[in-house]
Structure formats: C-alpha cells, structure tokens
Design a protein around this nucleic acid. Structure first.
Length: 891
RNA sequence: GGGCACGUAGCUCAGUUGGUUAGAGCGCCUGCUUCACACGCAGGAGGUCCCCAGUUCGAGUCUGGGCGUGCCCACCA
C-alpha cells in the first residue's frame, strides 16, 4: 500500500464522488423488504450555488443516511430543486437586461423559453456541487418542482382545495412589491426599523366659523390624497363634539366624515387618525366597517396616479416631499417629530412594500392549520429540539389566510379560466374547463395569468416527488417520510405548509420527525450573506481542506439545534484529523509490508473477533481493549446519530480515533511488534480494528474512509463494493470487555503518572529510569508485571513491584497506586516544590470532602453510592497527604 | 406588545436524570526533528459556570427576580 506522507483530499475526493454517482450506490429500492428510512431534501433554488447552510444541512443528513444505510435500512434520500418563482424570474430578467432584452417586449411565452433555457444551462450547478461533497442522494429520483408530474400534482391539489372551499378569490389588501410588481405573502415581508417623521396635519372642520380644525398625525403624508375619513375613538371625551361632523381634506377638497372606531388609540399622536382605506391595512378594515370609499392614489409602481391631481406621476417619496411642502405653505403642518417606524420591505426587491387593494387568490388556512396542530400535539410528527414545537403552535394558532397568487410569469399558472360573464371555473385541464363552461352555456375568454407562490408547490414536495396523485410504489413504500432536516428559517414558509397540505392531500402528516438546525454564521456571529461579503464558500473550503474536514467542522461546531460559528482555522483543524487518520492507516499498511505478513482475508468483516496470539493462546490485551472500545464507541455514536446529536458524534469519534486508537492502541502495537511478535493473528487484529474504525467514521468522513478502506480491503474476498454498503459496527455486548478496559486504564494511568513526574521534575525525556509501584489492587500488580515492556517503551521507566513505602524518591499517588521514581540528587529541590503543590491541592479537596461527610443530612439522604465514593475519596486524600508529608520530611 | 433561546477557560462551544476534584477544540507556555503523522509527540497553565434570592443534604443543572445578548411573530396611524 503506497500512500503519500500527507493526506491530499483534492486528489481523491472528486474521483470517489463521481464513482458513487456512476455506480448508483445510493439508489433506493421500492420493492425491498428491508425497513425504510426516507427523507426528501429541502429543494434548493435552481438559481443557487451551494452555500455553507446547504453544506451544514446536507452533512447532518448524510451522516444519518449513510448510517441508516449501513445498519441495513432501505434508504431513500430524494434530491431535487425548486423553481423559486420570484428569485429566478428576477435573475433571468437581469440576465436578459444585460443583452438589452426587456421581458415585457418579448412577452410571456418567449420569456419563459428563456427561463427554461437558463435553467437547463445553470440549474444543475447546485446539484453538481451536492454530488461533489458526497451527498448520498438517490440521483435517479431527482425532481424539479416544475417537472410535469409535480405540476400535475400542483393542479390536482389546487382543484381539490378549491372544491373543498379552501381556496377563494377576492379583493383584499395585500403586500404589494412595487419592484417586482406582484403581491407577496406576509412571510415575504421583512420589517426593519427606519428613522422617519411624524407629521401633524391640520384638516379644517366643515362649516366651522372660527377656522376650527382637527390635527391628525401621520408617517405617510402623501397618502392623504386618498383619505376618505378621519377617525376618533368613540369613548374619547376630547372629541365627542366631532361625532357626526365633517372635515375638509386639504389640497383635494374632499368632504371627509368623522367616524368613531375602536381601532383608534387615543394615546397615539393627537388621538385623531386620517383614514386611507386604499393604502393601509387598518384603514382598509375600518373602511369596510364604515362603508367608506376606497380611493387608490398610487399605481402598481407606487407612483401617484390620476386620482392624485397635480401630484400625478410622482414617486411616493417625491410626492411626500411635495405634499408636505404645499401643506406647509398653507400653514397646515402643525409640527413634525422625529419618529422611528417599522418599514416592511420585500424580501426579494428590497423595496418598501406598499399595502394595496387587489384581487388575489387565497388559501383558507384555519382548518388546515387545525389538523397540522393536532399532528404535532398527538406526536405523529415530532419536532426536535422540542422548543420549536411552541413556535410552530404559536404560528399555526395565529395563522392568517395565505395569499397564493403572484403576478409573475415563472411558476405554476393557476388552473382557472374566465368565462364571458366574468365568472370563472377551476379545473384540472383546459378540456375540463371547457366542458364546465359549456355546461354553463358559456365560453372561455381567457386563462388566469397569475402563478402560484413558490411555496405552494414545495408544500407538496414530500409526495408530489413520489408520484402523487397516482398511487405509486414509491409513495406506498416511502411516504410518510421518516425525517425532515431543515433550518428554522423556513419552519413557517415551508414546514408548516407541507404539514397543512400533506395532511389535506394524503391524510397523513408528511414526516415522523422534523429536525430543526441552526444557521451558519461567520467568526463574528454574523449571518453569512453575499451583500455582507462574509460568506465562506464551501467548495473553496472543500478544495482547500477536503470535504471531510469541512463537514466535520460544521457538525462538530454546533450543539443540537444551535447555530454554527464557523472559522476557517477550525476547518483546518479537522484537516489535521483527516491527516491523522491517513497516517495511522499508512502506518498499518507499512508495518504490514515490512513484516511481510500474508494477505489478510478474514471471512466476515462484520463479525470479526480478535484472534489469540499463536504462542500464548490468549488474545493480546491491547486487542481485547480496542475491540471493546470499538464496540462501545459504535453504540455511543449510533445513539447520538439516532438522537440527532451530530456534534456529539463528531466528538466521540474524534476522541476515540485520535486519543485511543492512535495514541494508545497503535503505540502499544508498535511495542509489541518491536518485541518481535510477527505472528499473523496480531496483524489480523490490528487490521481488523483499523478497518472497523474506518467504518465507524464513514458516515461523518465518507471520502477518506472510502479511499483507505478500499486500499485496506483490496484483497478481501467478498467485500462490498464500497464502505458505504458495508455494515455499521455494532456493539458486541452491553459493556464490552470491562476487565481489559480496566487493565488498559491502569496502564495508561501508570504511564501518564510517570510522564507527568518526569516532566515536572525536568528529568531527561529519553533516559531510562527505575521506578517502583506500590499497590494492593490486583489489577495494578498484574499490569505492572505483564506490561512492563509497554511501560518501559511508553514512559521510559523500568518498573518493579515494590514493598513498603517509597522514600527518598520522586513519588506520586493516585487512586490506584503509588509510583516512585529513582531520583538523582540534583532534582530534590524540584521535587520538594512539586510535592508542596500537590499537598496544597489535596488539603483543599480533603477539607471539602470532610465537610460533606460531617453533614448528617448528606449522609442519610444522598444515594449510598455517592456517600461511599466521597468516603473512599476522603480516605484516599488523607493517606496521600500523609505520604506527601512523609516524603517531604524525608527530603 | 407576544413568544423563543442564550450568558461556562483568552476565543468558539459541550455539559443528557441535580451528586466524587466542571470538559473539548483552537490559542497560550515548556520540552522533544522518537524511523505513521511538526497537519506531529509528551507535559502544563488557565474557570466567582452573568448577578441576587430561593428550593434541596447537595445547584453549572430546578424556581423567582435582575442585568446583558440574539432571534421569531404581530404591529403603532
């Protein structure tokens, strides 16, 4: 086995990524009888490139998927992309604008051709990147939200909801984006505090002799052009005299009634509100209650329209300036105050959203939300971490109807056709619509031009991707899915909608579990975004440090559900871990070649047990120990994966491989081989332990483990074609081999104690020294006798079992033994210092233990095991103190 | 206004059911080119677990209050 000295991920990763895809390694089987584990990807936008958020998510999912596959599940990870209505349309518009093409000039059909062409050319990028980072998706089942099958599902769902009376069309106030010229949903509006002003305007009272006026406060003076009333609180005594009066709207001259309505807050401003039903949601509602006229003064691009008289054609902000100017000139501005208000901006265009009355399509959400709430309440779907359930409930219980129509071209066109008499039919196809029209004695005049909100089709994703509404094999096998792993940022946008639509269409909630993860942030905890320029490109990092290092850094940096603060140095840190793995396996391979051992062909990798030494007939201690550890670590890692504690998985495996497998197992093996044991079973054990470690690590570091595993098992007959298809190590027995673990623990403790003493006393590192160990514990004596070679090799001391108390030597006491090192004269002073330091520490802990034991209630109420352990510890501290004092006086 | 988190080593964070002397990675200090790895090895320093009160024999962990930070929802004309 020839390996480079340092691991270079970029040399092996792309080839493996390609091979995995070519071999269809991750293809799910809908006819298999194995238990199923299924998951649909949160489809990234076709416009997108892979960012750290995707990589974080796919790393977590990939760990679960690879693990489930290795433990024998029939795994489906269904990939795909979302057409992302507004985002894509904007992008392609910009793209075309560069070539001097305006979508309005070329028209809808031509424009859509361009979008499709664009999608064909660039839409595969993110999928390609997912393949590159090893996401073990079933690429044969890749879907796109505008595939014919999925589009059919969208129409079917729309028609069914309509037939159930859950979709309606009507004139309401919606959030209008003056940039993209479409309505958007409440969720697509982002609020932001902004420094503004509050203008106090005078409206003269009609028919008043002494130029009486009312003063209204407003942040948007330009909308006064559309005022159709002023309002006061009915119980506000200050304005009782105004009830039934009228005022004159300045600049326009309209007579406005004074209305009484409880929505007025007497505390705010002057307690009198101007009412503009066409341009404010509260005013719109008030307008409906009082039958006010709705005077729209802004057009769809938020410019003053024909109703705005001389301000016609002005942008809303320019109009504001001019209106204030003119009112000031008339002496109608009483005062202006600074005021901070919350401005809603369109998530897409970034422009301030304009409340606008228009005809839109809505989903009635109340009953859908009820069912979605019950699914989580009953535990049929569980959200982890659990605190997100409260957010989910909170939102679902206060849900408002969902505006689903968008005045865009790119998307699923609403399946509604208008008739001559102005009515409409909703149907699955034009044929159906025509038939219905004929039944009504009408003809179709046109089809609805609006498309659906992107989240409508993604709301069907878990089953539309599996062939719904047909009763397909995939649907029966893989739906409802086992898990959804997604970010909290789309809990409402997406998860909530899938829950509602999934239950409504299939009768079942689409997931058994929903695992919510955090966001990836930069080193300053800022959200990564292109505009801030603080994005760390995952592909760049992957090229630089390797996919395994990037995904390890991502999952290791975040506790369950919490955000990741990502630093490049951390990724670099895990590259060194990969390098460590590489070199450990390189060492195993090199040793094997040097020893000229026979080709290793164990019959069954999965069931391999450590083999006995051919001479002694006993399994070497280090092999007993490492297989016990492997077994326990497998159980721990599995438990953590099952509970979505990915950072724990990372921690457990990192520690095991580096600080147990490399630091102790390999070091012990080196020594035993140095002693001349070249027998094949010793090799087989080490190879098997290495191979098993690689399988343990595979879900979290797929590339390096695949590459090394392939080399290591090259000659193993009947092995699977990929480590991904091998089995995940299972625990041999509940507590492994406690005896072996105890012995190695003592060995490690002996070595560590010796090293520690040596370093503290500044004894030369390589010089062989003599030492005695005193203990009454049989295991310690056993280790001292049987592993003296190992101790000598690892700590450079010749160990003897001593009798009586050590004196005149450097000694240290632990819970299990005393270790005394033969000390050259010159080091006495250093030792005195060391002992005094130990003494101070011990006196402190002994005091606290004594206090505890003097406390009667502790002794009677605490569990016996706790009391006992404190008692034992105290006895131990006391004897230590005694010994140290003795040693000090002996110096 | 309503809701949800968070505050532990210099930094980023673990800490599952309250229980022996609170952990990791990075950084820092000391010593090692020991023939897998200097992307390494060995050792070490570093903590008022934000503050106050309470429950308890016992609190980083539970309760209440305070201070500080972040997020979500609703929305103020």
């Amino acid at each position: 086995m020839q390996l480079a000295k340092a691991y270079e991920p970029s040399r092996i990763e792309p080839a493996w990524a390609e091979r995995w895809v070519e071999q269809d390694l991750f293809r799910a089987d809908s006819s298999s009888s194995k238990p199923v584990f299924s998951l649909v990807i949160p489809p990234p936008n076709v416009t997108g490139a892979l960012h750290m958020g995707h990589m974080f998510e796919s790393s977590q999912v990939d760990i679960t998927m690879r693990w489930q596959r290795m433990r024998g599940r029939n795994v489906l990870w269904l990939p795909g992309t979302d057409h992302a209505g507004i985002a894509t349309q904007m992008l392609v518009e910009r793209h075309l604008a560069k070539q001097g093409i305006d979508r309005r000039e070329i028209g809808r059909e031509k424009f859509l051709q361009h979008v499709w062409a664009w999608k064909e050319e660039y839409g595969g990028r993110i999928v390609g990147q997912l393949k590159r980072v090893g996401a073990s998706c079933d690429w044969t089942r890749e879907r796109f939200t505008m595939d014919p099958g999925l589009s059919r599902a969208v129409r079917e769902c729309f028609v069914r909801l309509y037939e159930q009376g859950l979709i309606y069309r009507g004139e309401y106030m919606v959030n209008w984006d003056p940039g993209t010229l479409t309505a958007i949903s409440d969720l697509e509006v982002e609020y932001e505090e902004q420094q503004g002003h509050l203008w106090y305007l005078r409206y003269p009272v009609c028919g008043s002799a002494d130029s009486e006026h009312v003063v209204v406060a407003t942040t948007r003076p330009e909308t006064m052009l559309g005022d159709t009333a002023v309002a006061v609180h009915p119980a506000d005594p200050r304005f009782a005299h105004l009830h039934g009066e009228f005022v004159t709207l300045p600049l326009v001259g309209r007579r406005l009634p004074v209305i009484c309505d409880e929505f007025v807050d007497p505390q705010f401003g002057t307690g009198i509100v101007k009412v503009t039903p066409a341009h404010d949601p509260n005013d719109f509602a008030a307008g409906q209650r009082h039958g006010l006229e709705c005077v729209t003064v802004l057009d769809e691009e938020a410019r003053i329209n024909d109703r705005g008289g001389k301000y016609r054609g002005l942008d809303r902000y320019e109009a504001r300036r001019r209106v204030v100017e003119d009112l000031t000139a008339l002496g109608l501005v009483e005062k202006v105050e600074d005021y901070t208000n919350n401005v809603g901006r369109s998530q897409r265009s970034g422009l301030a959203v304009e409340p606008r009355v228009s005809t839109q399509w809505f989903v009635k959400t109340e009953t859908l939300a009820d069912a979605a709430i019950r699914a989580v309440e009953s535990g049929r779907t569980r959200i982890v971490p659990g605190q997100w359930e409260r957010n989910y409930f909170e939102w679902m219980r206060n849900i408002r109807d969902w505006c689903i129509s968008r005045q865009l071209w790119w998307g699923h066109r609403i399946p509604a056709w208008y008739l001559e008499d102005g009515s409409f039919v909703v149907a699955r196809s034009r044929q159906d619509a025509e038939a219905e029209a004929a039944r009504r004695g009408q003809r179709i005049t046109r089809r609805e031009t609006d498309v659906l909100d992107t989240w409508f089709s993604s709301g069907l994703w878990p089953f539309s991707t599996m062939g719904w509404p047909d009763d397909t094999e995939d649907l029966r096998t893989f739906y409802p899915t086992s898990l959804l792993n997604t970010g909290f940022d789309i809990l409402f946008f997406w998860v909530a909608r899938m829950m509602m639509l999934g239950i409504a269409m299939t009768g079942e909630p689409p997931f058994a579990k929903v695992c919510i993860h955090g966001l990836v942030r930069d080193a300053d905890k800022q959200k990564m975004s292109k505009t801030k320029g603080n994005v760390i490109d995952p592909i760049l990092m992957t090229d630089r440090y390797g996919t395994d290092a990037v995904r390890f850094a991502l999952v290791a940096s975040a506790g369950q559900g919490s955000d990741v603060v990502l630093k490049e140095e951390r990724i670099a840190g895990y590259r060194t871990f990969a390098n460590k793995i590489w070199n450990a396996v390189r060492f195993v391979g090199m040793s094997l070649e040097k020893a000229g051992a026979e080709v290793w062909t164990p019959p069954d990798l999965a069931a391999f047990r450590p083999l006995p030494d051919e001479r002694t007939g006993r399994v070497p201690l280090e092999d007993q120990w490492i297989f016990s550890r492997l077994s326990k670590v497998a159980a721990e890692a599995s438990e953590h994966i099952e509970q979505f504690r990915y950072h724990e998985v990372a921690g457990v495996l990192y520690h095991f491989f580096w600080h147990e497998f490399c630091d102790w197992y390999i070091e012990l093996k080196k020594l035993s081989f140095a002693e001349g044991s070249g027998l094949s079973n010793a090799w087989r054990n080490m190879l098997a332990a290495t191979e098993r470690s690689l399988r343990l690590l595979h879900p979290i570091m797929p590339f390096i483990t695949e590459d090394l595993w392939q080399r290591l098992t090259e000659n193993t007959a009947g092995r699977p074609s990929s480590i991904a298809l091998s089995s995940y190590p299972v625990s041999i027995s509940e507590d492994g081999d406690p005896k072996a673990e105890r012995l190695v623990e003592i060995l490690r403790s002996l070595v560590a104690t010796a090293r520690n003493l040596r370093a503290e006393l500044k004894l030369p590192a390589s010089e062989m020294l003599s030492a005695t160990v005193h203990s009454e514990i049989p295991e310690v004596l056993q280790v001292a006798r049987q592993c003296s070679g190992a101790v000598a090799g690892l700590a450079r001391i010749r160990l003897a079992v001593g009798t009586g108390a050590p004196s005149g030597q450097a000694s240290r006491h632990t819970a299990d033994f005393d270790l005394a090192i033969e000390l050259p004269e010159a080091h006495r002073a250093a030792m005195r210092k060391s002992l005094e330091k130990q003494l101070a520490k011990l006196v402190k802990v002994a005091r606290s233990a004594r206090t505890k034991l003097r406390n009667e209630q502790f002794v009677t109420k605490a569990p016996p095991r706790v009391v006992d352990s404190v008692r034992t510890s105290l006895a131990d501290y006391e004897s230590q103190v005694e010994r140290i004092r003795a040693a000090l006086s002996g110096l």
